[in-house]
């Protein structure tokens, strides 16, 4: 599906709408005229060389990064300066980071219940029951009372995914979730993500795991120098790149 077709296809299915988004770090133009629409339940993999703006774009969606021009709407709420809007959007968007970012002073269970208790004002018992449910889904309920420092990287990342899921988000953002992991731990995290994808979660995932992209992505976005260079189905992206830039990128990540 081309960008033009996407634009004409305006309907209420679009859970994220990014229009002409531009961002600068001081004088440096990091994101250039980004246009992106994401349907509810769609799985998108974003790839590109480092410095291409893929993480920055993803982080704009829950306002970890500000942008200077353009508009961004998440689940019908427009991203503006208002704290109310920002908090409303953040409640709908879960995020998983490269370095897990679990809270080291809290136990696993407390990491998971903090958001539900303080943001969603759920009773502690209910929050703990939900937390245990998600810990079982990521297959580490036995670690509930340990601290993050006692877990392996793969386990920590699965806890981080469970922590986001406890907030019952509409959208999950993954910012290079497996880049900081030992090779043997990547699979356990990807398995959880694949399961999540199969359940119909809307996902945006910055990753270089091409196997994962082929398996679950509805659409792969290739970025370079702050713009979206190509977006298409995984088959088209990998087998039939339209630009020399993507061809070069693919040859470099696949040929070794």
């Amino acid at each position: 599906m081309s960008v033009e077709q996407e634009k004409t296809n305006e309907n209420n299915d679009d859970i994220i709408v990014i229009k002409d988004l531009n961002k600068w770090y001081g004088e440096f133009h990091v994101l250039k005229d980004i246009n992106l629409r994401v349907k509810k339940g769609e799985k998108i993999v974003i790839c590109g060389p480092s410095g291409s703006g893929k993480s920055t774009m993803t982080r704009c969606i829950n306002r970890l990064e500000e942008f200077q021009r353009g508009s961004l709407t998440v689940n019908g709420v427009e991203m503006i300066e208002d704290v109310k809007n920002i908090e409303a959007i953040r409640r709908e968007v879960g995020m998983v980071f490269q370095h897990f970012n679990l809270f080291p002073h809290l136990t696993i269970l407390e990491n998971l219940t903090l958001g539900p208790i303080w943001v969603q004002k759920k009773p502690k018992k209910e929050a703990e029951a939900t937390a245990m449910k998600y810990l079982e889904r990521v297959k580490i309920p036995d670690q509930a009372n340990k601290f993050p420092g006692q877990l392996s990287g793969g386990q920590q990342q699965r806890v981080a995914i469970a922590r986001s899921l406890c907030m019952n988000p509409e959208i999950m953002l993954f910012d290079e979730p497996t880049s900081a992991l030992d090779p043997e731990m990547i699979k356990e995290v990807l398995d959880v993500m694949i399961e999540l994808a199969n359940e119909g979660m809307t996902m945006l995932c910055v990753t270089h795991e091409m196997g994962f992209a082929k398996k679950v992505a509805d659409r792969v976005i290739f970025m370079d120098a702050g713009e979206i260079v190509e977006q298409n189905t995984p088959e088209e992206i990998f087998n039939n790149p339209q630009t020399d830039r993507l061809q070069l990128f693919l040859s470099q990540i696949l040929d070794h």
Partner: peptide, 9 residues
């Protein structure tokens, strides 16, 4: 960032 993304004030 993790605290922000959870929607904490």
């Amino acid at each position: 960032e993790a605290a922000d993304s959870l929607g904490l004030s």
